[in-house]
């Protein structure tokens, strides 16, 4: 299993390089956005789909990662290497996630949703309170550090085009996606993952089988928080900003809807959901303008279509887009 995941990852890496090198800068930027949505959605789909915990606070955990990254990039004289910063942002979010997870492990169902909802509402308030330090409503500007010279040269040598900041960021994001997906895929097929599923399916049976319920829940929450932290760090780099208005409750709900649209518990589903979040608004708005709608009407079209897609998916493919696709393939094979 592990070997298969690694092989898939290697294949994915080649595909990522080919896609990023052959698409425009703008598409690269969109892929960078898709990468952070995918990482956050993957964490959430593991938590909700595999372990059965509903979190409405993942947007807030992303804020923790984003602000950590932003703070570490504030110094004008040189900062830590970018990968180290992202790793640290992930660790910081893991710590916050562990604190929340310990509290959350005692709750379930709507109570857990309520507690994480409070998180989503409260965390964007922190930068407003410490506005001297965290930039208040305007947030902290994030400037991407320069691409290391050896990397830029190496990239040029291999691909024949300059490695732009945006493409660099897209590579970074997709490297993150591949690493996170391999780890999560292995984890969910390991003993730990099976424990999580057991807890989800029947608490009493799981406890009788010797599984520590609280520990399994905290584990799942911590892993999921780590993903959110990394995603938040990438978001801050990509948006060049960490500001409270970027991490409202809407973000948490969007992530959840992406996970449901893609297919709860499925990593491929997380990827599909992230693609929808990234590409749908821009494509729909563009189509609206082409159809001769005014700018305002076209802008209002995107949320409408997103809502309609959600309704259709829930009606026609209750297992999400990835689940529906799998079912279709099975059905064609068997017939």
């Amino acid at each position: 299993m592990v070997r298969r995941h690694l092989l898939l990852a290697l294949g994915a890496l080649v595909v990522v390089v080919l896609v990023l090198e052959t698409t425009s800068q703008f598409r690269n930027a969109q892929f960078a956005a898709m990468a952070y949505y995918a990482i956050a959605a993957a964490g959430l789909t593991i938590l909700t789909g595999l372990n059965g915990q509903l979190s409405l606070g993942h947007g807030a955990l992303m804020a923790v990662g984003a602000y950590s990254t932003a703070l570490m990039l504030q110094s004008r004289e040189g900062t830590l290497p970018l990968l180290v910063i992202l790793a640290l942002a992930t660790v910081i979010t893991v710590v916050v996630g562990a604190l929340v997870g310990v509290a959350a492990a005692r709750l379930h169902g709507p109570y857990l949703a309520g507690a994480t909802l409070a998180l989503a509402v409260a965390i964007p308030g922190i930068p407003l309170y410490f506005s001297e330090w965290l930039g208040g409503e305007q947030g902290l500007n994030v400037r991407m550090p320069e691409i290391p010279v050896w990397l830029a040269d190496a990239a040029y040598f291999v691909t024949g085009q300059e490695l732009t900041q945006i493409r660099y960021l897209a590579y970074l994001g997709w490297l993150g996606v591949i690493v996170v997906f391999v780890l999560l895929a292995n984890l969910s097929r390991s003993r730990v993952g099976r424990n999580w599923q057991a807890v989800r399916d029947d608490e009493v049976a799981a406890e009788l089988a010797g599984i520590n319920l609280g520990r399994a829940r905290v584990q799942a929450f911590v892993v999921s928080a780590g993903c959110a932290g990394l995603a938040g760090g990438l978001l801050a780099l990509s948006a060049r900003l960490a500001a409270p208005s970027g991490f409202t409750l809407t973000l948490s709900l969007l992530l959840l809807s992406a996970v449901v649209l893609g297919g709860l518990g499925s990593l491929v589903g997380a990827l599909v959901g992230a693609a929808l979040l990234t590409f749908l608004p821009q494509v729909v708005t563009g189509a609206g303008t082409d159809l001769g709608l005014t700018d305002v009407q076209a802008a209002q079209l995107a949320p409408l279509i997103y809502g309609l897609v959600t309704v259709l998916v829930v009606l026609l493919a209750p297992a999400g887009l990835a689940g529906g696709l799998r079912k279709l393939i099975h059905w064609r094979r068997s017939s």
Partner: peptide, 22 residues
Amino acid sequence: VVKDDGYNPTNTSQVTNELVLN
């Protein structure tokens, strides 16, 4: 060309990418 950012800086960043690059 006008793009909607909904007064959300994260969106501003995305639509500015679109304006400049696309």
